[in-house]
Simulated scan of single mutants.
Amino acid sequence: MYDRLREIDEAIAAGREALEALEDAADSLDSAKRWGIVDILGGGLITSVIKHSRLGDANHALADARVALARFSAELDDVRGVAGLTAEVNRWNAFFDIACDNWLADIFVQKEMSDAADRVDEAIETVKRAVRRLEDARRA
């Protein structure tokens, strides 16, 4: 019984760690999307650079999340499929966005950021559900 509770506690801790990293990534993606809107509406080179910096922040948070998710998925089968998350923008779109700095490139990058944000939001919900199930099992 004690071993089972300890394993559940370890899984809950790993899930919470993954959630924290995923939420950091979601925040960075939201910031990047806001900068993307500014860029679409007439931002310049600086705006594009800031936007891509925020994307880099999101990727660092997602790298942390992948480590925590790997630990979490060792305990659970429920979180399979979320370990491959990235917020990367196609390299050519990123180059085109910064080098050419036009509205068309801005829109392509904005779409990629929105898709990444949707994937992160889905992962957050999946992990939250799994953690809730663990917490319920712990109380039972």
Rank of each mutant, 00 (worst) to 15 (best):
G56H: 12
G56L: 04
G56S: 08
G56N: 06
D57T: 02
A58S: 13
A58M: 04
N59F: 12
N59T: 00
H60I: 08
H60S: 09
A61R: 04
L62T: 02
L62F: 04
D64R: 14
D64V: 07
R66D: 01
R66K: 14
V67P: 00
A68W: 14
A68R: 10
L69C: 02
L69H: 03
L69W: 03
A70D: 11
A70F: 03
A70M: 05
R71T: 11
F72Q: 01
F72D: 01
F72V: 05
F72C: 01
S73D: 07
S73N: 15
S73H: 12
S73P: 02
S73Y: 07
S73K: 13
E75K: 12
E75Y: 14
E75D: 11
L76H: 06
L76P: 04
D77S: 15
D77N: 09
V79H: 04
V79Q: 03
V79C: 13
R80W: 07
V82R: 03
V82P: 00
V82S: 02
A83D: 10
G84H: 04
G84W: 00
G84D: 15
G84Q: 08
G84P: 00
L85S: 08
L85P: 01
T86Y: 13
T86G: 14
T86R: 15
A87Y: 11
A87K: 07
A87R: 10
E88W: 04
V89C: 13
N90R: 06
N90C: 00
N90K: 09
R91F: 08
R91E: 10
R91V: 08
W92A: 13
N93R: 06
N93T: 02
A94Y: 07
A94I: 00
F95M: 14
D97R: 13
I98K: 02
I98F: 00
I98G: 00
A99M: 10
C100N: 09
C100D: 02
C100M: 14
N102V: 02
N102K: 12
W103S: 10
W103I: 09
W103A: 13
L104D: 05
L104Y: 15
L104E: 05
L104K: 08
A105L: 07
A105Y: 10
A105R: 05
D106R: 07
D106V: 01
D106G: 08
I107E: 11
I107C: 04
I107T: 11
F108P: 00
F108G: 01
F108E: 10
V109S: 11
V109N: 12
V109L: 13
Q110I: 08
Q110M: 05
Q110L: 12
Q110T: 08
